[in-house]
């Protein structure tokens, strides 16, 4: 029998606690009605604050707005970025590397400063405080993930897989739908979910472009966290965490290329 690696196990436990500890605390708070200092666990449980939060228009409104914003922004970014990623992976054109690195360069600029200068332009265009304005900025910040991950995925597909399909009589489109897309799909889905979650939790766009008319969920969360009642923020946190968590799990579990290929008639 191998000796139990005690050191490694301790480290593992510490890491898991460090990562999950805060999440657990937030979840506990969301279901706590009374929780005073010396107690390790809440003394009174309940859904009291859930009912309260869900009944407040000022909270549910921004949540729905943010979900809609993230969906629109991420989908729009996907429609632009995925074909671009395919081009980056397959075509050799001058300035290809430069263009790819420009995405990273843009990402390295602090969001706040970037959005501030965009806000100045949007002010003239009448986009500040509008849904399309915020969606546009959020879509912009989703682009890096949506370009780099899919480009790598498309590039990782062995050319012989596509050649074999083409050689057996498939049209270029058929090759793409039956071979290329299913192979890249898990990465595409992952990039979508990652970008969606990042956009959903992003504060600056709502602060600089959305205010005062479009209020996003992270802004509401900040306002609530600053208040005395911890539970309101915790409830909102769990409310928004759950769908994101499920979404991330789904990517792993169901976005296998096999299922998608059959859906596309490969």
């Amino acid at each position: 029998m191998r000796r139990f690696p005690l050191g490694g196990l301790t480290l593992l436990t510490a890491m898991v606690l460090a990562m999950l500890g805060p999440v657990v605390t937030v979840v506990l708070w969301a279901f706590a009605v009374k929780w005073r200092y010396p107690q390790i666990l809440p003394t009174e449980w309940g859904l009291k604050f859930w009912a309260e939060v869900l009944s407040r228009q000022t909270i549910t409104g921004p949540v729905l707005t943010s979900l809609a914003l993230a969906s629109v922004a991420t989908t729009a970014a996907a429609l632009i970025c995925w074909p671009a990623a395919f081009a980056f992976a397959r075509l050799r054109f001058p300035g290809r590397q430069l263009l790819l690195f420009s995405f990273i360069a843009a990402q390295a600029v602090p969001k706040f400063a970037l959005f501030l200068s965009i806000a100045v332009i949007f002010l003239q265009l009448g986009l500040v405080g509008t849904f399309p304005g915020v969606a546009l900025v959020q879509g912009l910040s989703a682009m890096l993930v949506m370009i780099w991950i899919p480009t790598a995925a498309f590039r990782a597909i062995p050319p012989a897989l596509e050649e074999a399909a083409f050689d057996l009589g498939a049209s270029r489109l058929r090759v793409f739908l039956a071979v290329t897309l299913p192979q890249a799909m898990p990465a595409l889905a992952a990039s979508y979910v990652l970008a969606f979650v990042a956009v959903l939790f992003e504060v600056d766009s709502g602060l600089l472009i959305g205010a005062p008319k479009v209020t996003t969920m992270p802004l509401t969360l900040m306002t609530l966290s600053a208040q005395v009642v911890v539970q309101d923020a915790a409830v909102l946190c769990v409310m928004i965490w759950l769908p994101c968590f499920v979404l991330l799990l789904l990517t792993r579990r169901f976005m296998t290329s096999r299922g998608i290929a059959e859906g596309l008639g490969a």
């Binding site: 062995p158 897989l161 050649e163 399909a165 050689d167 039956a178 299913p182 290329s257 998608i260 290929a261």
Partner: peptide, 11 residues
């Protein structure tokens, strides 16, 4: 054509 890498579609 039969390829060196067999090129079967893994999905």
């Amino acid at each position: 054509m039969v390829f060196q890498s067999h090129a079967l579609w893994p999905h």
